[in-house]
Amino acid sequence: MTAPRTVLLTGAAGGLGTLMRELLPPYGYRLRLFDQRPVETAAGEPDAITAGLADTRALREAVRGADAVIHLAGISLEAGFEEILRANIEGTHHLYEAAREAGVRRIVFASSNHAVGFTPRPADGSGAIPVDTPRRPDTYYGLSKGFGEDLASLYWDLHGIETVSVRIGSCFPEPTSVRMLSIWLSPADCARLLHAALTAPDVGHTVVYGSSANTRLWWDLSTARALGYAPQDDSEPYAARLIAAQGALDPENPEHAFLGGAFCTDPPRWPH
């Protein structure tokens, strides 16, 4: 697949969307921005489309003529089921329907580690957790990401729309917690991964973990590397400072025992 030029970026006003608006254009992409919140565009950026995922007419306009979609929009934290249903489940379905009608053949879906959040973390940075580990969502939010992965699989089998579902860890300029040392995705590596996901051939529906090449990595990056992703960053330079301030991970603390961290315990859900 040749590199797409026009890419619809949903969730463009969010934290991750804002980072990618700066980092993706140097790869040759012309971004079309979409968010329900107004996007403050910089000089040289196209005007953004201000609409929500429930606005199917706006979505159809947004995808028309796009070569691919990076779907970041939706609620990114836990919320009530009805809110998650509208934004993350129904909204993602609306996006896929609009893409199908417009003939868009490639989507990159922002899934999350919270789709498998109740998976016990490895005792060390062994990178041992595979992509095909059974789903164990830690929240309605995590449940919605599992739905999105399955929806992507269905649209590949039914309609030939290829998707790379990226189970993003935590994408910030630098890690802010000891847990994040194992799941951190630097913004530069995020752009590298999204570029690989947009350009790799014959992905069908592929699920990958999204993180940098962290020394303390918990999961297997092999499916991401198979796309051509070559992470360049590592959280280890931040480790000594964070551990000194916060202490080492405690396996008896449920926030530290599972991949999903505080999502498994806030509000307290475990032990039952």
Rank of each mutant, 00 (worst) to 15 (best):
A12G: 09
A79G: 08
A257R: 13
V203Y: 00
W270R: 12
A197F: 01
F263V: 12
A42H: 13
R167F: 00
W219T: 04
A110Y: 05
G74P: 12
V116I: 15
P137A: 04
P122M: 02
P130M: 01
V69Y: 03
P4A: 11
P122L: 01
A42Q: 14
R179Q: 08
D124Y: 10
Y29D: 08
A128T: 14
F263N: 08
S165V: 06
E40P: 09
V203N: 02
A43H: 12
I49W: 01
D138I: 02
D138S: 09
Y229S: 03
T92I: 11
L221Y: 06
I89L: 12
C171H: 02
G44Y: 10
G11C: 08
L9Q: 10
R86D: 15
P187Q: 01
S235T: 11
A66W: 04
D55T: 08
Y238E: 14
P237T: 10
I129L: 04
W184E: 05
R21V: 11
Q36I: 11
I107F: 07
P237R: 05
A58P: 11
A51N: 05
E149P: 05
Q36T: 11
G228S: 10
G74E: 09
T119S: 04
L154R: 14
S126R: 09
A191Q: 00
L143H: 03
A51E: 09
A12Q: 07
A239W: 05
A196R: 02
L242P: 07
L8R: 08
G80H: 13
R64M: 11
H159K: 08
S222T: 15
R106L: 09
W219V: 01
R30C: 11
R135A: 15
D233Y: 05
Q36S: 12
V131E: 09
H256Y: 00
F147E: 02
D157P: 06
R100F: 09
D233E: 13
S212H: 04
A200G: 06
D67W: 07
G260L: 00
W219Y: 14
A62T: 10
E162L: 02
P25L: 11
P267D: 10
D202C: 06
F34C: 07
L154A: 15
T206N: 02
L217Q: 15
E83A: 15
F258G: 02
E40D: 14
S165P: 06
P120E: 10
R179L: 05
A224Q: 05
D234P: 09
T176M: 11
D157M: 12
T56I: 10
N214V: 03
D47Y: 01
V116S: 13
L59A: 04
R179A: 02
A197H: 01
D150M: 14
A98M: 08
L16T: 13
W270Y: 15
A99H: 11
V39K: 01
A230Y: 03
V63W: 03
Y96P: 11
S186R: 00
P254A: 06
R21Q: 10
F147N: 01
L59C: 03
I129N: 00
L33H: 05
G74F: 06
L158P: 03
C190I: 03
L85V: 10
T10I: 08
V207W: 00
C264L: 05
P122N: 07
Y141L: 00
I49A: 01
R32K: 12
F34E: 11
R5D: 13
G148F: 00
L185A: 07
E174Y: 09
L194S: 00
Q36L: 13
A248D: 15
P26E: 07
Y155E: 07
